[in-house]
C-alpha cells in the first residue's frame, strides 16, 4: 500500500467511525433533541402535572374561542390522532391560525388542560401567492399543509 492509499483509508475510516459514533449518540439522545411532543406522545408518556414542556400540533379548525376581553384564548391542538385542550393568556403570533401548526410551552393541569405560557407559530413548507392559494381552495385541490 502506498502512503497515499494508507492516508486515504485512514481518513475515510476515521470519518466513518465518527459518523457511527454521532449516529449512536443522537439516537440515544433523540428524546431530548425533539423540540416538542405531539398529543399522542403526551398521552403515551404520562407527563406529571406542572412539569414544563412543549407540545406541538395543528390548531384544530373551529376550536379557537376568546374570552370577552380578548385576553384568554382557548383552543385544541391535534395531531389528528389525539387532541389536547389548551388555554393561553396573552398575545398570539401573527401566523397563529386554525388549521396551522403551533408549538406551545407550558404544563398540563390536573384537569388535563394544557396551560400555555408561550405560543410559537409553526409554518409549513408550502409557499405560494394568495391568488394561487385561493384558486386551489376554490377548485377543491387544496391539500392539507401537513401529511
Amino acid at each position: 500500500m502506498t502512503p497515499k492509499r494508507k492516508r486515504l483509508w485512514l481518513v475515510l475510516g476515521s470519518v466513518a467511525v465518527l459518523g457511527c459514533a454521532a449516529t449512536l449518540v443522537l439516537t440515544a439522545l433523540s428524546d431530548n433533541i425533539v423540540f416538542f411532543y405531539s398529543p399522542t406522545q403526551i398521552a403515551e408518556k404520562q407527563i406529571p402535572p406542572e412539569r414544563r414542556f412543549r407540545m406541538g400540533g395543528l390548531v384544530e379548525a373551529g376550536s379557537v374561542t376568546k374570552s370577552p376581553d380578548g385576553q384568554v384564548t382557548r383552543f385544541k391542538v391535534t395531531d389528528t390522532n389525539k387532541t389536547v385542550d389548551v388555554v393561553y393568556r396573552g398575545l398570539l403570533p401573527d401566523l397563529f391560525r386554525e388549521g396551522q401548526g403551533v408549538v406551545a410551552e407550558g404544563s398540563l393541569g390536573s384537569d388535563g388542560v394544557f396551560a400555555a405560557r408561550e405560543i410559537l407559530a409553526k409554518h409549513d413548507e408550502n409557499y405560494m401567492p394568495p391568488e394561487v392559494a385561493k384558486a386551489l381552495k376554490d377548485s377543491g385541490q387544496w391539500k392539507d399543509g401537513k401529511k
Binding site: S30, V34, F35, F36, E125
Partner: peptide, 11 residues
C-alpha cells in the same frame, strides 16, 4: 425530518 423542530421541513 428526524426530530420535531419548529423549523419547517425542506421545500
Amino acid at each position: 425530518d428526524w426530530w420535531n423542530t419548529l423549523h419547517q421541513p425542506a421545500s
